[in-house]
Amino acid sequence: MTDDRTHRIAVRDLTLAYGQTRVLDALTLPIAPGKITVLAGPNGCGKSTLLRAIRRLLKGTAGQVLLDDVDIAKMSGKDLALKIGLLAQNPSAPGDMSVEELVRLGRYPHQTMMQPWSPRDAEAVERAMAGTGVAELRTRPISSLSGGQLQRVWIALVLAQETDVICLDEPVNHLDIAHQLECLDLVARLNREHGRTIVLVLHDLNLAARYADELVFVREGRIAARGTPTELMSASLIGEVFGVHATIITDPVHGSPVCIPASRSSAPKAAAEKVAEAV
């Protein structure tokens, strides 16, 4: 899939406030089409807010989010839902809903009054379930699934929506390490094999560095820095954005930069130097 089939998103001078508290402050960010962009930053920095604003779940007080140069505020809800999908943080649905019933919800924006359910919808649901490996769970109530299975089902819902842009808000929260990797591998595959533009909020810097094409540090409602993980994962930048002393080494297996933050209580410097020497 080439770039011209993928939608271009650009956030321009976006300001967003909850009451008096300004969460996004004239923030500008172009999203690389067909790439994986990871938003990272300290708690309360506005990264989730930014993601939700990109999907128009929140509206800015000033500035715009542009989709192919059109202000999304001017688009219809359905049109937007056909182009940008979002997996919310901690999504929920009734426990007795079956996997298939949940994934079917992803077809909502494609359905019309005249044709509530077409073979295309059925195919999209099958593809989404097959692609996430949940097809054999289709009749199971979602309350009976493990955390990792459940997260795959939610991703299948967003996949069934068949949007070129997929936003995921902390999709690996509450998952153990194996399921974190499984979930992010799936996301990376969607990007590589289907050319989807992915925008992710991740807390774990090392996972962010491993999966991101472009890493974006958000701090106090502004973009603190953006670039490739190699460019951004520096001790000084991480110190500035997150307020921690960190040592950056290179992951010997994947080649991505790894951040080793120092605990305040231990003697960090000597230990960090030791690690740096060892690698």
Binding site: L57, L80, A88, L102, L105
Partner: peptide
């Protein structure tokens, strides 16, 4: 159909275009 989607949380329903 909209009620089906509303069985999920508000964020999910809204991002489906409900």
């Amino acid at each position: 159909r909209a009620l089906d989607a509303l069985q999920a949380d508000d964020s999910t329903a809204a991002s489906l275009g409900v």
